[in-house]
Amino acid sequence: MRAENNKVELTGTIITEPEFNHEVFGEGFYNMHLKVDRLSGTADIIPLIISERLINLNDKYTGTAVNVSGVYSSYNKHEEKRNRLLLYVFVCEIEKANPGEHANLNNIQLDGYVCKEPTYRKTPLGREIADLLIAVNRSYGKSDYIPCVVWGRNARFVGQLEVGTHIEINGRIQSRGYVKMYEDGTEEQRTAYEVSVSKINVLEEEN
Protein backbone atom coordinates (compact mmCIF):
# COMPACT_ATOMS: atom_id res chain seq x y z
CA MET A 1 0.00 0.00 0.00
CA ARG A 2 3.05 2.27 -0.15
CA ALA A 3 2.27 5.27 -2.33
CA GLU A 4 4.49 7.94 -3.84
CA ASN A 5 1.81 10.61 -3.29
CA ASN A 6 1.27 9.87 0.43
CA LYS A 7 4.28 9.30 2.70
CA VAL A 8 4.43 9.41 6.50
CA GLU A 9 7.60 8.95 8.60
CA LEU A 10 7.27 8.97 12.40
CA THR A 11 9.47 8.22 15.40
CA GLY A 12 7.85 8.19 18.81
CA THR A 13 6.66 6.08 21.72
CA ILE A 14 3.79 3.59 21.65
CA ILE A 15 1.34 4.47 24.45
CA THR A 16 -1.45 1.87 23.95
CA GLU A 17 -1.54 -1.86 23.44
CA PRO A 18 -3.02 -3.25 20.16
CA GLU A 19 -6.84 -3.19 20.05
CA PHE A 20 -8.72 -5.10 17.36
CA ASN A 21 -10.23 -2.84 14.66
CA HIS A 22 -11.31 -4.96 11.70
CA GLU A 23 -10.47 -7.97 9.53
CA VAL A 24 -9.95 -8.20 5.76
CA PHE A 25 -9.64 -11.60 4.05
CA GLY A 26 -8.62 -13.21 7.32
CA GLU A 27 -5.99 -10.57 8.17
CA GLY A 28 -6.61 -8.70 11.43
CA PHE A 29 -5.88 -4.99 11.82
CA TYR A 30 -5.32 -3.28 15.16
CA ASN A 31 -5.45 0.24 16.64
CA MET A 32 -2.43 1.63 18.48
CA HIS A 33 -1.46 5.17 19.47
CA LEU A 34 1.93 6.81 19.00
CA LYS A 35 3.14 9.77 21.08
CA VAL A 36 5.47 12.14 19.23
CA ASP A 37 6.94 15.00 21.27
CA ARG A 38 7.19 18.50 19.83
CA LEU A 39 10.08 20.88 20.45
CA SER A 40 7.67 23.05 22.44
CA GLY A 41 7.31 20.30 25.05
CA THR A 42 3.76 19.33 24.08
CA ALA A 43 3.07 16.10 22.19
CA ASP A 44 0.95 14.83 19.32
CA ILE A 45 -0.96 11.57 19.87
CA ILE A 46 -1.31 9.89 16.47
CA PRO A 47 -3.66 6.93 15.79
CA LEU A 48 -2.15 3.99 13.93
CA ILE A 49 -3.77 1.02 12.21
CA ILE A 50 -1.41 -1.91 11.88
CA SER A 51 -1.65 -5.45 10.48
CA GLU A 52 -1.25 -8.41 12.81
CA ARG A 53 1.51 -9.51 10.43
CA LEU A 54 3.71 -6.61 11.56
CA ILE A 55 3.41 -7.13 15.32
CA ASN A 56 3.43 -9.94 17.87
CA LEU A 57 0.17 -9.82 19.78
CA ASN A 58 1.80 -11.59 22.74
CA ASP A 59 4.30 -8.74 23.24
CA LYS A 60 3.79 -5.60 25.32
CA TYR A 61 4.30 -2.38 23.37
CA THR A 62 3.50 0.48 25.75
CA GLY A 63 6.62 2.59 26.28
CA THR A 64 8.44 1.18 23.24
CA ALA A 65 10.22 3.69 20.98
CA VAL A 66 9.57 2.87 17.32
CA ASN A 67 10.13 4.09 13.77
CA VAL A 68 6.97 4.00 11.65
CA SER A 69 6.42 4.55 7.94
CA GLY A 70 3.08 4.45 6.20
CA VAL A 71 0.32 6.50 4.58
CA TYR A 72 -2.22 8.94 6.04
CA SER A 73 -5.74 7.61 5.49
CA SER A 74 -9.26 8.84 6.13
CA TYR A 75 -12.53 7.06 6.83
CA ASN A 76 -16.05 8.50 6.95
CA LYS A 77 -17.88 7.15 10.01
CA HIS A 78 -21.62 7.68 10.10
CA GLU A 79 -22.64 9.18 13.47
CA GLU A 80 -26.20 10.08 14.33
CA LYS A 81 -27.27 12.42 11.50
CA ARG A 82 -23.84 13.23 10.06
CA ASN A 83 -20.55 11.74 8.92
CA ARG A 84 -17.39 12.14 10.97
CA LEU A 85 -14.01 12.08 9.22
CA LEU A 86 -11.60 9.76 11.04
CA LEU A 87 -7.87 9.98 10.29
CA TYR A 88 -5.12 7.48 11.01
CA VAL A 89 -1.69 6.34 9.80
CA PHE A 90 -1.92 3.00 8.00
CA VAL A 91 1.39 1.40 8.97
CA CYS A 92 3.47 -0.20 6.20
CA GLU A 93 6.65 -0.70 8.24
CA ILE A 94 7.45 -0.56 11.95
CA GLU A 95 10.68 -1.25 13.83
CA LYS A 96 12.10 -0.55 17.26
CA ALA A 97 14.18 2.63 17.41
CA ASN A 98 17.82 2.09 18.29
CA PRO A 99 18.60 2.83 21.97
CA GLY A 100 20.18 6.24 22.37
CA GLU A 101 19.18 7.28 18.86
CA HIS A 102 15.52 7.94 19.62
CA ALA A 103 14.68 11.33 18.13
CA ASN A 104 11.10 12.44 17.62
CA LEU A 105 10.31 12.55 13.90
CA ASN A 106 7.01 13.67 12.43
CA ASN A 107 7.04 14.18 8.68
CA ILE A 108 4.35 13.86 6.02
CA GLN A 109 4.44 14.46 2.26
CA LEU A 110 1.20 14.62 0.27
CA ASP A 111 0.43 15.13 -3.42
CA GLY A 112 -3.24 15.88 -3.96
CA TYR A 113 -5.97 18.26 -5.05
CA VAL A 114 -7.79 21.11 -3.31
CA CYS A 115 -11.32 19.72 -2.90
CA LYS A 116 -12.99 22.50 -0.90
CA GLU A 117 -12.64 26.28 -1.08
CA PRO A 118 -9.86 27.25 1.38
CA THR A 119 -10.79 29.42 4.36
CA TYR A 120 -8.38 32.28 5.16
CA ARG A 121 -8.63 34.29 8.37
CA LYS A 122 -6.62 36.00 11.10
CA THR A 123 -6.40 34.94 14.74
CA PRO A 124 -7.28 37.44 17.52
CA LEU A 125 -3.53 38.12 17.78
CA GLY A 126 -3.31 38.88 14.07
CA ARG A 127 -1.66 35.66 12.91
CA GLU A 128 -2.66 34.56 9.42
CA ILE A 129 -4.12 31.06 9.06
CA ALA A 130 -5.88 29.07 6.34
CA ASP A 131 -7.84 25.81 6.50
CA LEU A 132 -7.37 23.50 3.54
CA LEU A 133 -8.93 20.13 2.61
CA ILE A 134 -7.08 18.07 0.03
CA ALA A 135 -7.99 14.83 -1.73
CA VAL A 136 -5.13 12.37 -2.17
CA ASN A 137 -5.81 9.66 -4.73
CA ARG A 138 -5.35 6.01 -3.85
CA SER A 139 -5.93 2.84 -5.86
CA TYR A 140 -9.34 1.58 -7.03
CA GLY A 141 -10.63 5.10 -7.68
CA LYS A 142 -10.79 6.07 -4.00
CA SER A 143 -9.32 9.10 -2.24
CA ASP A 144 -8.21 10.10 1.25
CA TYR A 145 -9.45 13.50 2.45
CA ILE A 146 -6.86 15.25 4.60
CA PRO A 147 -7.56 18.49 6.53
CA CYS A 148 -4.58 20.84 6.66
CA VAL A 149 -3.77 24.10 8.43
CA VAL A 150 -1.43 26.65 6.87
CA TRP A 151 0.19 29.67 8.55
CA GLY A 152 1.66 33.07 7.62
CA ARG A 153 2.33 34.05 4.00
CA ASN A 154 1.63 30.46 2.96
CA ALA A 155 -1.89 30.95 4.37
CA ARG A 156 -2.37 34.03 2.19
CA PHE A 157 -1.21 32.05 -0.83
CA VAL A 158 -3.48 29.09 -0.04
CA GLY A 159 -6.48 31.38 0.43
CA GLN A 160 -6.34 32.20 -3.30
CA LEU A 161 -6.20 28.61 -4.57
CA GLU A 162 -9.13 27.29 -6.58
CA VAL A 163 -10.87 23.97 -6.04
CA GLY A 164 -9.14 21.38 -8.21
CA THR A 165 -5.64 22.88 -7.90
CA HIS A 166 -2.94 20.18 -7.85
CA ILE A 167 -0.59 20.75 -4.92
CA GLU A 168 2.27 19.12 -3.04
CA ILE A 169 2.75 19.73 0.68
CA ASN A 170 5.23 18.92 3.44
CA GLY A 171 4.43 19.16 7.11
CA ARG A 172 3.66 17.21 10.26
CA ILE A 173 0.61 15.45 11.69
CA GLN A 174 -0.79 17.21 14.73
CA SER A 175 -3.52 16.43 17.25
CA ARG A 176 -5.66 19.11 18.88
CA GLY A 177 -8.25 18.82 21.63
CA TYR A 178 -11.63 20.52 21.37
CA VAL A 179 -15.08 20.40 22.99
CA LYS A 180 -18.05 19.11 20.96
CA MET A 181 -21.29 20.87 21.98
CA TYR A 182 -24.62 19.05 21.54
CA GLU A 183 -28.09 20.56 21.15
CA ASP A 184 -29.15 19.28 24.57
CA GLY A 185 -26.34 21.28 26.20
CA THR A 186 -24.03 18.35 26.89
CA GLU A 187 -20.35 18.47 25.99
CA GLU A 188 -17.82 15.88 24.84
CA GLN A 189 -14.04 16.12 24.74
CA ARG A 190 -12.74 15.17 21.31
CA THR A 191 -9.47 15.22 19.39
CA ALA A 192 -9.04 16.67 15.91
CA TYR A 193 -6.24 15.60 13.59
CA GLU A 194 -4.78 17.68 10.79
CA VAL A 195 -1.57 18.34 8.88
CA SER A 196 0.35 21.46 9.89
CA VAL A 197 1.88 22.58 6.59
CA SER A 198 5.45 23.90 6.42
CA LYS A 199 5.91 23.91 2.63
CA ILE A 200 3.45 23.99 -0.26
CA ASN A 201 3.92 23.96 -4.03
CA VAL A 202 1.43 24.15 -6.90
CA LEU A 203 2.11 21.42 -9.47
CA GLU A 204 1.64 22.05 -13.17
CA GLU A 205 -0.63 19.57 -14.88
CA GLU A 206 0.86 17.62 -17.79
CA ASN A 207 -0.97 17.93 -21.08
Rank of each mutant, 00 (worst) to 15 (best):
A155E: 09
G70L: 07
S139F: 11
E128Q: 10
S69C: 09
V114D: 03
L57Q: 12
N98P: 00
E101M: 11
D59E: 14
V91G: 02
C92M: 03
R127K: 15
L86K: 13
V66R: 03
A65Y: 06
N98F: 12
D144S: 13
V150G: 02
L125F: 09
S51K: 12
R84T: 14
N76Y: 12
E101T: 14
A130H: 05
D144K: 09
I55N: 04
I94K: 05
G70H: 06
L110E: 02
I49L: 10
L125I: 10
P147S: 12
V163K: 11
K81W: 13
K60D: 11
E128R: 09
Y88S: 13
E128V: 06
L161S: 04
G164C: 05
I49F: 08
N104K: 10
Y113D: 08
N104A: 14
K142R: 14
W151L: 03
G164T: 10
T64N: 07
R127A: 13
G159H: 06
L133R: 06
F90S: 10
G164L: 10
S139T: 13
D111P: 00
Y75R: 15
R82A: 12
V71G: 10
T119S: 13
I108K: 06
S74N: 01
D111Y: 06
L110K: 10
Y72F: 15
R127I: 12
G100M: 11
A155K: 07
H78I: 06
I49E: 04
Y61D: 02
E162L: 11
L48F: 02
G112S: 07
Q160D: 11
V71L: 04
V68E: 03
I49Y: 08
G159D: 04
L125K: 13
R84F: 08
K81R: 12
K122F: 04
S74P: 02
D144I: 12
T64G: 03
D144W: 06
E101G: 08
Y120S: 04
L57N: 11
Y145C: 00
R82F: 08
N76R: 12
G70P: 01
K60A: 11
R156T: 14
Q160G: 08
P118S: 04
N137F: 10
L110D: 02
V68Y: 07
R53C: 00
D111L: 13
P124A: 01
V66Y: 05
I134T: 07
K116Q: 14
R84M: 09
K60R: 15
I134D: 02
V114R: 06
Y140H: 05
V150N: 04
Y75D: 08
I146A: 02
T64W: 06
A130F: 04
V149F: 03
G63Y: 08
G70C: 05
K142W: 05
N154H: 09
L132F: 05
N56Q: 07
D111F: 04
N58F: 13
Q160I: 04
I94P: 01
Q160W: 00
V149R: 14
L110T: 12
E93D: 15
E95F: 06
I94D: 00
S69V: 08
